[in-house]
Design a protein around this nucleic acid. Structure first.
Lengths: 207, 207, 207, 207
DNA sequence: AATGAATGAGCCTTCATTCAT
DNA sequence: GATGAATGAAGGCTCATTCAT
């Protein structure tokens, strides 16, 4: 009886994705050659094209995978709290945590405005919008209670995540010394103050 | 005697810069070929190399030129105010105003993480840092007066400009309907709340 | 006992041939990829290689099969007549008829100079020559009787079939409106006039 | 004073065309790689693309150039005669002569159905049609005089040139021993008999 | 200053073919 | 018999850059 006690090498397809992420994160999609990915993944050119069709196929698969993980973590963390201010803090914490634990994925998703094809661009936008709405539903009670401010929809993203994104971009580029962990509270505070009706309240009102 | 005693910039050279900005903004530096710039500028390959040495030469010249214009505008606007909150508002206003009036330059500077060569990268970082300090000097009185909060240096950028940058990126990509003008007050408020010791104060304390 | 004592051709194998003919006829052998044939035939790559060894194997099998059908029809039609002019007419009729009823096969055989490998090239040439001789034997009496002209051997093909081939090529390319049926008589007449000793005779002399 | 007594090497562009013709004629367009053309022409890849845009660009330029030469020769030869039968003979003679003197060009134009792109295909068809009409004008008097038969337009090409084309294809493939010169009279006779109202007349009627 | 022909390394992609299951 | 993952050589084409004029 074979028990395959040795874990089989990760199937080619995922090896390619892993390799691609590393190289994409380092040099960007455009500057990454297929050969780079071959070298890093130990796969042949043919194999890559067999699984992903073309370079953009890899980029898109990678993007969707990590985007999904990111959002899931973000929303999960929000749902785990029952107070507006803590929710916001949890999200910022999750955001910074995700970036810290998966810097390559973060670099790939956020650090550069990667040009995934127009077709995928659309899919990504729709996906993002739907997750955003999901997140909004979680926060809805606090909007209704007047704890969080009513604003033009397109401002929520920037106010909530803008500072964190700006910080993250710098950190991911490696030119920031300040530790991410020590920054969460500040970023969360900024987001809270920007979004709260009364920035001095703790957000417990309503509960 | 010539009417203009100062020799006007050679029309070719500036035509090339103008063309380059347009194409760089649209497709990014990497995806832009010299031929693209030829087409757009009506100049020949040789002409471009004669004036700029190589592609990176164009990119760098363009980058420094617009980065300088941007910072000058930002700092000038800050200096024109004598109240912390108004300073912050003026800066956000200048930021959004600049982006609105020069979208291509903004796209080139902010929308993608453009890879200008390592050599210039360093120069750009130093330049940015020095202008940042200049800006800080303008705000220094309010820090001393306790109106603005003392924070880790690397957080000021994100808190002040993060939301605006995040919004601008979206707007520059063309997928935001909300008018930039209508957003300034909110972004300024968010920055103020994030940076002020007491977000409810107007920032006049101290003067 | 099975109803059909002769094992029917494996459906896969013939499905592959059918698919290959369609694609070869449309794009030519060289421009057809194995994957094209897979798509068209619903067979897997492995299956194709199992049955035919390689691409050329398919091309050759297909070529011989249809070449054989073509010649058989041509010769049979000639044999069915007992008068030189009618023989020629019958052949032209068979030629045009075959092309009309099997345009893909005709396109494959005639429309382009398909490059089947040198090895098969030789086999094809020999086969063609032998069938040509067979055809000649049928016409031999009329040569002996002086009804048909003695010419350099290599001219019989062109004089007999040249106009029809030229017409067929155009028709197969789809840029001819004139109906094939209406053209047979003319082509047959041209062939007759070209080959007959006395083009005004009907070809009955001698019988 | 430099007199450039040595003839300057043919400019790159025409060297490329010459080389391409040789290789295309030998292996066909599809089987010819750009590298083949580089080797044969001593030009660099870049040079080729600079002048012709892509492989098809070379193919098209080559095709038009030789097609034009061919037709010009054909029509000129027809115009030089004042008798229908001699005209036909002259055309066949020109056809065979052209093929003999420029076998590579002939192989390229006639031997295989080369796939020049759909766009050029159209241009070629139109060009051919216009030259065909030109040729027709030369023959028109003999049609009016009843010396040449009225037939469906699409049959003239096949009847006039079909046998010659068929012969030429074989000769160009190198598998015909019969000398082209000795064949002209026969091909011309066949064409004459096919097209003449009375194949036994010499075509002088009317003059 | 300006032009554009020439260069050649390098990139993305295709494709026939093999082979383990 | 059938499947499809894997391979890697080869091809078309792009592009930054040089240089003679």
């Amino acid at each position: 009886m074979r028990t395959t006690s040795i874990v089989p090498p990760p199937p080619r397809k995922s090896a390619i994705l892993t390799a691609a992420l590393a190289v994409f994160a380092e040099k960007g999609i455009e500057s990454t050659s297929i050969e780079d990915i071959c070298r890093e993944s130990q796969a042949s050119v043919g194999s890559i094209y067999h699984h992903f069709g073309n370079k953009e196929g890899i980029a898109a698969a990678l993007f969707m995978q990590h985007l999904d993980e990111y959002w899931t973590e973000l929303i999960t963390s929000a749902k785990s709290q029952s107070n507006a201010q803590r929710m916001i803090h949890a999200m910022l914490s999750a955001h910074i945590g995700w970036i810290t634990s998966q810097p390559d994925a973060a670099r790939y998703l956020f650090s550069r405005r990667q040009v995934v094809s127009a077709a995928h661009e659309q899919a990504i936008r729709e996906y993002t919008l739907s997750r955003f709405r999901e997140l909004f539903d979680v926060l809805k009670p606090w909007f209704k209670a007047g704890v969080l401010r009513r604003l033009p929809a397109e401002l929520y993203g920037p106010l909530l995540m803008g500072p964190a994104q700006e910080y993250a971009r710098e950190w991911l580029r490696g030119c920031v010394k300040l530790e991410p962990r020590k920054v969460i509270d500040e970023l969360a505070l900024a987001a809270w103050r920007s979004l709260a009706t009364d920035p001095n309240q703790s957000g417990n009102r309503g509960s």
